[in-house]
């Protein structure tokens, strides 16, 4: 019965330790900036319009085809008296979060850094009663970035960390 005694002592030792429970809905773990939830569109606060020009790059690269993009002429373009340098701008944009597999490819292919993965808890807590509610439109995709509630992080693929010693030497 030594083995049984050993098992029971092991459980007793965990009985004595501090619980490891995270009180989840009350206490949220701090998310790292690399965290990936679902893609979001970013808002250009300087000109007060989306970064996205509706170039379809992400739509073409998406492996699960969860995006639908429509572009239009930018009414705010310089030639029309506005202050934006974007000739075309996003008109309508849908992402089906129920279909997205969070592979980060849309972020990587974007030429304008207009899309990023949501790295806040709102991206993770997306339960809805109807799966059709998971299809997000342009307003919903932009709102978080527009309100500044995103810890923006757009990775550069293949870029290594800079060696502080080497930087100092220069």
């Amino acid at each position: 019965m030594n083995g049984i005694a050993r098992s029971m002592l092991t459980t007793l030792s965990t009985f004595m330790r501090k619980p490891v429970t995270r009180d989840y809905p009350v206490v949220h773990k701090e998310l790292p900036k690399t965290d990936r939830a679902f893609p979001l569109l970013l808002w250009d606060h300087e000109i007060d319009e989306p970064f996205c020009t509706g170039c379809h790059a992400c739509e073409r690269a998406c492996p699960v085809e969860c995006m639908t993009v429509l572009m239009k002429d930018n009414p705010n373009h310089k030639s029309l008296g506005g202050d934006s340098s974007r000739r075309k701008i996003i008109d309508k944009f849908w992402i089906d979060y129920g279909r997205c597999m969070r592979c980060n490819i849309c972020v990587e292919v974007c030429n304008f850094e207009a899309i990023a993965m949501n790295n806040t808890w709102t991206g993770h807590e997306t339960s809805v009663y109807d799966r059709r509610d998971l299809t997000m439109d342009l307003q919903q995709l932009l709102s978080q970035s527009r309100a500044g509630k995103i810890n923006e992080w757009v990775p550069v693929i293949g870029q290594a960390n800079e060696d502080p010693a080497a930087v100092k030497a220069e």
Binding site: T14, F15, R17, P19, V20, D23
Partner: peptide
């Protein structure tokens, strides 16, 4: 049981 499993 929870305490034995280090839970609450």
């Amino acid at each position: 049981v929870a305490r034995f499993n280090q839970r609450i």
